[in-house]
């Protein structure tokens, strides 16, 4: 029965399915980020879009910002509200045995997975020169709060990576290579688990 089989589910950052969620001048595609969607669908993943935390907090016409600017109690409370809204659905997937992964947005102050953007002295009038921020290792605030909410519910950490859209310069081929390697590693891990179960 299809409905009983464990499925592969990808939790994807909102803007990977909707570039209208991006900050002004940040949309690189008209609609979906098609290389991500194609790669996930080709490997049989269902897609589950996460809410966009920045859009509903700072608006569709917000300025660019770095991690430190969003690192406020109010923004974290907003992210927790979003996490509490989507967590029951994630929990449903996990409880039925589905294999979940998370695809964020590298370099994003909110949705970064391996990398986020940083500049401690950003603030005031947004007239900084281009590229006047740093890419540093670490999660964005939305991902931190989402993972904390899943942990509060006793759920395991999700394997995660990000599409490198907010890294300062766009390297689509490199981003695609990274994503494919990550997906390949998940398929390999799933194959190993299946072999272990089948072993006498």
């Amino acid at each position: 029965m299809e409905q009983d089989k464990p499925r592969k589910v990808a939790l994807v950052a909102s803007c990977l399915l909707n570039q209208n969620a991006k900050v002004c001048q940040g949309a690189r595609y008209p609609a979906l980020v098609s290389p991500v969607v194609q790669a996930l669908r080709a490997r049989g993943y269902l897609l589950q879009q996460l809410p966009c935390p920045e859009l509903a907090f700072a608006g569709a016409r917000r300025w660019w910002a770095v991690y430190e600017q969003y690192d406020t109690p109010a923004y974290r409370a907003h992210c927790r509200r979003l996490a509490q809204a989507i967590a029951p659905l994630i929990e449903q997937y996990l409880r039925r045995g589905d294999e979940l992964i998370l695809i964020g947005l590298e370099g994003s102050p909110s949705t970064g997975v391996r990398f986020t953007s940083s500049k401690a002295d950003w603030g005031g009038r947004p007239n900084r020169p281009q590229d006047d921020w740093e890419i540093v290792s670490g999660r964005g605030i939305w991902i931190e709060e989402l993972e904390a909410e899943l942990a509060r519910r006793g759920l395991p950490p999700l394997p995660a990576t990000g599409w490198a859209l907010d890294m300062g310069r766009v390297d689509e081929a490199g981003a695609q290579r990274d994503l494919e390697q990550f997906l390949e590693s998940r398929d390999t891990a799933a194959g190993t688990r299946a072999d272990d179960k089948a072993a006498p």
Partner: peptide, 19 residues
């Protein structure tokens, strides 16, 4: 050139629908 806002599967998703 339409972006997507995904609705959840059938079920009760009050807080998510509000978001």
């Amino acid at each position: 050139k339409y972006g997507v806002l995904q609705l959840p599967p059938p079920g009760t998703h009050g807080p998510l629908l509000a978001v």
